[in-house]
């Protein structure tokens, strides 16, 4: 029986993996181990949160610019460690048939190829020929019909965004509309509208433009929203550097190495022309943006 050899070889291979103490060949992981693993996971979670906070604090305190990839790399490495621990112990890969681990490894390879090659394309557009990059109007050119926003004429199911207006800009137009209606009726603005009004005032004043009536009205009742505004806009106000960058900074934010032309372009746009125009030729591929890689 020439093939008997390969037969027993196959079974030996089978016996080789896993522990064949009882008829399942499966190990019972002690409760202690499970607890320790859980502890490690908690620590990992704290570490990634802490890392993010420390970075913000560090950048703010020492006024340094930490490149973006540091943040990404730290967060993702910790996540990778945590998942490995989960896979090895909770999911018992460590004690399991090695083929199961192989399945996971192949899966991760597949994912890596998917992400890697797709990024290769989208990150290298326009490398040789300009026309391969995309020229689009940031956030759309309007002329589309969207579900009705708050404050739309009663009964309207859809509204059409005017030509040349992006969805994001339309959000501001409808916000202004809603704020105007609410203030006219003597109602109370929801938090994000209050913030919007305050920001809008800031933007218009920076441009030296007159305030429309609803913002004037808002100025009169501003006190009412002081708490909200302090919470949502507080930090940004104090930090002149941020204000210069045009960021309204709802939250304290780390100064990253992000210097996308588009970013500053957009900010200046919104400063000097309110929100009537979109940022110019945007969708700049990250080829121009070393920070994003």
């Amino acid at each position: 029986m020439a093939h008997a050899a390969s037969h027993s070889a196959a079974h030996a291979a089978h016996a080789a993996h896993g522990d064949h103490g009882h008829d399942h060949g499966h190990i019972v992981i002690p409760q202690r181990t499970l607890l320790v693993v859980f502890g490690i996971l908690l620590l990992g979670t704290l570490a990634t949160v802490a890392a993010a906070q420390i970075e913000v604090w560090f950048a703010a305190t020492f006024d340094v610019v930490i490149p973006q990839w540091v943040n990404v790399a730290v967060a993702l490495s910790i996540a990778a460690v945590k998942s490995t621990v989960v896979a090895l112990y909770f999911m018992q890969l460590r004690y399991d048939n090695p083929f199961n681990s192989l399945v996971v490894v192949f899966t991760l390879f597949t994912l890596a190829f998917f992400l890697g090659f797709t990024m290769l394309d989208l990150g290298s557009r326009k490398a040789l020929y300009d026309y391969k990059g995309s020229y689009v109007t940031a956030g759309g050119q309007g002329n589309i019909s969207v579900p009705a926003r708050p404050g739309a004429p009663a009964g309207a199911e859809y509204e059409t965004i005017p030509a040349g207006t992006s969805i994001a800009q339309f959000a501001r137009i409808t916000a202004a509309r809603q704020a105007e209606q609410t203030l006219a009726n003597g109602g109370t603005l929801p938090a994000q509208l209050a913030v919007f009004c305050a920001q809008e005032i800031q933007r218009l004043q920076a441009d030296g433009k007159p305030l429309p009536p609803y913002l004037v009205k808002f100025e009169q009742v501003r006190e009412q929203y002081a708490a909200i505004l302090a919470k949502k806009m507080g930090h940004g106000h104090a930090d002149s550097a941020h204000a210069e960058q045009g960021a309204s900074a709802n939250h304290a934010r780390v100064r990253t190495g992000l210097t996308l032309p588009e970013f500053s372009q957009h900010s200046s746009h919104s400063k000097d022309s309110g929100h009537s125009k979109d940022a110019g030729p945007a969708a700049t591929p990250a080829g121009d943006n070393p920070a994003a890689k």
Partner: peptide, 13 residues
């Protein structure tokens, strides 16, 4: 959707 910053060729990928 390029109008929103997406990429139609991404679908092809």
């Amino acid at each position: 959707d390029p109008r929103m910053g997406g990429d139609p060729v991404l679908f092809q990928h």
